[in-house]
Design a protein around this nucleic acid. Structure first.
Length: 191
DNA sequence: TCCGAGATTCACT
DNA sequence: GTGAATCTCGGAG
């Protein structure tokens, strides 16, 4: 089942937690890529580490102010992209960062996108920049509405049940590190 | 196996 | 001009 807009319009922390175990799907020209989301991070306007801290709107972060369910891809460290799903209502600059997915379909495409540097599926997409590389996303995919009927990118619920979600501090940032807004799960049970 | 440094482009100040 | 929600590789232990 494809997730609709109302799923993403809830509180960012709730969405971040509920996204664990959902399937990130991309119907590319090369084929369909699917992965179980197993690590996320929440970012809100009130969060100092967030691009939209204080509700400031810029050219870069304008996608985060869109309606829930939009894809926000941003460029960082001169070489990498990270992917987020916009949450809450239009005008609120909140999003959930996809930190990691477990590949379940289109693994060959993902390997190709990663230049066959890693052959182990577990290493294909276990990091925010790696997820973008494996899916072949860049800033051209920024602002896509994943809840649209004919969207090539969407999130669906294939009823993978997370066994134990752990909530920890975020990493890779310099501000507001003390917030336990990172959700992770290593084991899933198929319903 | 672990840790430190380099890579390298964009947006904001 | 500066620093960023990161990854990878190479060298040391």
């Amino acid at each position: 089942m494809k997730l609709n807009q109302s799923f993403f319009e809830k509180d960012t922390l709730i969405v971040a937690k509920e996204l664990i175990g959902k399937i990130l799907t991309y119907k590319s020209e090369k084929g369909t890529i699917k992965g179980i989301i197993n690590e996320t991070e929440a970012y809100t306007e009130e969060d100092e580490a967030c691009h939209t801290f204080g509700g400031k709107k810029t050219k870069r972060n304008q996608t985060m102010f869109c309606k829930g369910g939009h894809l926000y891809i941003y460029f960082t460290y001169g070489m990498y992209h990270c992917s987020n799903i916009v949450t809450e209502k239009e005008g609120r600059g909140c999003a959930v960062l996809i930190r990691s997915v477990i590949p379940i379909a289109g693994i060959e495409i993902m390997k190709k996108n990663r230049n066959h540097k890693k052959e182990n599926p577990k290493d294909l997409s276990n990091g925010p920049a790696k997820v973008c590389m494996a899916y072949g996303w860049d800033k051209n995919h920024n602002g896509i509405d994943t809840t649209k009927k004919d969207s090539q990118i969407y999130i669906e619920d294939l009823e993978y049940i997370p066994e134990n979600i752990t909530q920890t501090q975020r990493i890779g940032i310099s501000k507001a590190k003390e917030l336990d807004w990172r959700f992770k799960c290593d084991k899933f049970n198929k319903k």
